[in-house]
Amino acid sequence: MTDTTRGVLFPERLPRLTRLAPPPAAAELTAWFWIPQWDLPEGMESRQQVLSYPAANLVIEPDGVTLWGATTRATERVLRGSGWAVGALLRPAALARLSSAPSDLVDRFIALDEQSLLAAVSDAMPDGAAAAAVVARWLVDRVGPVTSEGRLANTMADVLMGVPAPTSPAILRLDDAAEHLRVSVRTLQRLAHRTVGLSPAAMIRRRRLQEAAQRVREDTDASLADIAAELGYADQAHLANDFRTVLGLSASEYRSRS
């Protein structure tokens, strides 16, 4: 399973976070479940900054059920008091059945009128595994059988995010991704638009920035120039620009704060 801190900009600030693999029946619908739980002293707050995966999330919290589209920027949530959430990182095959226009959800969310799901998850908490099982069953029932296009979209997302073989050289060009999937570049672009809402290039950029943030944070002996070269950036300035545009700070500033 992917590193549980990938995309989390400041892991030391995390509340208790459980990440669970889906059961086999839901494996084509969700990559994993993420379940934060927190109980902070009065007057204390925890700021959670996340560079999310280029994917949608189904989120159940005590006050409702929401469907969040893919994001193009880093997000922040301030936690206070006590609470919980049960989230499912959706695979494209699921999102395409839950939303008729994934591109309209980019950087947005919609509330879902799913009171029975909310009640069942609330009853299961604080047992995260039981709550995730409830959401998995709901997804299987709601989405139904996965189509051939849904499976192709899942494979596309895996290829663009480096999931199948993380130790192999990452695919950094659309031509290479299209060749790997045995489709045209135009078909790849249309598939991503219909099932994720982002372009394939945007998905590759997000994965690369996630990897860069993790390397900058953890591999303090590596120079920023070396990290930029290893991850396919044109140069260190390109890496710096990506950090400033999406995260609002330079790579060196991020390293000093981590």
Rank of each mutant, 00 (worst) to 15 (best):
P169C: 15
S184L: 07
L239V: 01
S99A: 15
A177W: 00
A225I: 00
P36V: 08
R73A: 14
L40Q: 06
V159Q: 05
T72C: 13
L14N: 12
P23T: 13
V183C: 08
D242N: 11
L174K: 02
V78W: 14
A26L: 11
V78H: 15
W138Q: 01
L118G: 03
R182G: 14
W84Y: 10
A111V: 09
L139M: 12
L224W: 02
T2N: 07
P145C: 13
R215W: 12
A130D: 04
A192I: 10
L224M: 00
A229Y: 15
Q189W: 13
V121N: 04
A25M: 10
G87D: 01
L95N: 03
R16G: 14
L188F: 13
L98H: 06
L14Y: 14
L249P: 06
F33H: 10
D176E: 05
Y53C: 01
A26R: 06
A119M: 04
E149Y: 13
T71K: 03
S223W: 02
S122L: 03
Q214D: 08
L152W: 05
A234E: 10
G81Y: 08
L98N: 05
E211A: 13
I171E: 02
A101R: 09
V121W: 13
V50T: 03
G83S: 07
A27W: 15
L58F: 14
D221A: 15
P22E: 10
G162Y: 06
A202T: 14
P54I: 12
H180T: 14
P41I: 12
D63N: 00
G69I: 01
A178G: 11
Y254F: 14
I35P: 10
S256D: 08
I171P: 00
T155I: 02
A240K: 07
A157R: 02
Q236I: 00
P41C: 10
A111G: 11
A201G: 15
A55D: 00
A119D: 11
L172I: 13
P11C: 02
R215K: 11
V163R: 12
L139H: 08
